[in-house]
Design a protein around this nucleic acid. Structure first.
Length: 280
DNA sequence: TGATATGTTATCTT
DNA sequence: CAAGATAACATATC
């Protein structure tokens, strides 16, 4: 689902297309999605797009920012005269706007940024830029892979937690960026049973796991994310990582390493996929 | 038809 | 009180 590689792919697209443009109008079709005063951002120019964990922040030149979490099914799709000939993935609804389009940002140069969200779990908040860290999601966010989560920190967090290792990997307050797909695939790559208690994992295994996480996140990024549910990038195109799943959604299939039939269980209320033979 | 999937948060339990 | 467990949110899909 939208995890670090997916959100980063969206960020890269937005960075490329919306930075430098001015917001001319904001149309809110589903009020519960957006909070804050849209008048604060009309007329402002977009100067940066940042990502923290699975959250996005669009910075404007008037000391305001747009904080975003797309949760499970949010989409940001950019259209202008140059990109309008690109065929949109059916996951966007095919034409824009449509019944899943809840907010429309009209930008300078006739560009438009659509926010779609099938399940309406996502949120957009207009805040002063220096108040971003006061939003609880950003305030409580744990250290992040590729940024401030060194192996030493990762090892420290792991050795102190009683949570099952897979549940820990997905806990955004302890470490940020990993969701269900990459947690399953990283544990598979590291040959670790997702049911084990985090603190019982040996130092050697923790090292392997850390490297496996960086490996699968990198693979996700290179493939432009996974379009398993309805993720698309900023141009409305699908990613390709779903063609490279190691464990996620492979229950009933043969393990790609040892041929054993992959199992599915529930951990922390989430689907968990693993090989009962080679993940110890 | 109704169970299922998902990220985060609120609420319950231990 | 804190850590962990679980329910709730919404809706297309199987």
């Amino acid at each position: 689902m939208p995890e670090l590689p997916e959100v980063e792919t969206i960020r890269l697209g937005l960075q490329k297309y919306v930075v430098g443009k001015t917001i001319e109008n904001v149309e809110i079709r589903l009020p519960k999605i957006l909070s804050g005063d849209p008048k604060e951002i009309v007329g402002a120019k977009i100067i940066d797009v940042r990502r923290f964990g699975k959250g996005l922040v669009i910075d404007l030149d008037n000391n305001h920012s747009i904080a975003i979490h797309i949760k499970l099914t949010g989409q940001f799709i950019y259209r202008d005269s140059e990109t309008s000939s690109l065929k949109l993935s059916p996951k966007t609804g095919g034409t824009l706007p449509n019944k899943w389009t809840h907010v429309i940002f009209k930008l300078s140069k006739s560009a438009v940024l659509y926010y779609n969200d099938l399940r309406q779990f996502g949120w957009i908040r207009i805040v002063k830029s220096d108040k971003i860290k006061e939003i609880s999601f950003f305030k409580d966010l744990g250290p992040e892979f590729f940024k401030d989560l060194t192996f030493e920190k990762f090892s420290n967090i792991t050795s102190k937690s009683n949570l099952k290792i897979k549940v820990l990997l997905m806990d955004q307050k302890r470490m940020s960026g990993i969701g269900n797909i990459y947690a399953n695939d990283a544990l598979f790559d590291a040959k670790i049973d997702p049911r084990r208690s985090a603190k019982q994992i040996s130092e050697e295994e923790v090292k392997k796991l850390y490297n496996s996480i960086l490996k699968v996140l990198t693979l996700g990024l290179r493939n432009g994310g996974a379009s398993e549910l309805n993720y698309v990038n900023a141009l409305g195109q699908e990613g390709k990582y779903q063609n490279h799943f190691l464990a996620y959604a492979r229950d009933g299939e043969k393990c790609i390493r040892c041929g054993t039939i992959m199992k599915k269980i529930t951990l922390g209320g989430r689907g968990t996929y693993f090989c009962p033979a080679c993940q110890k």
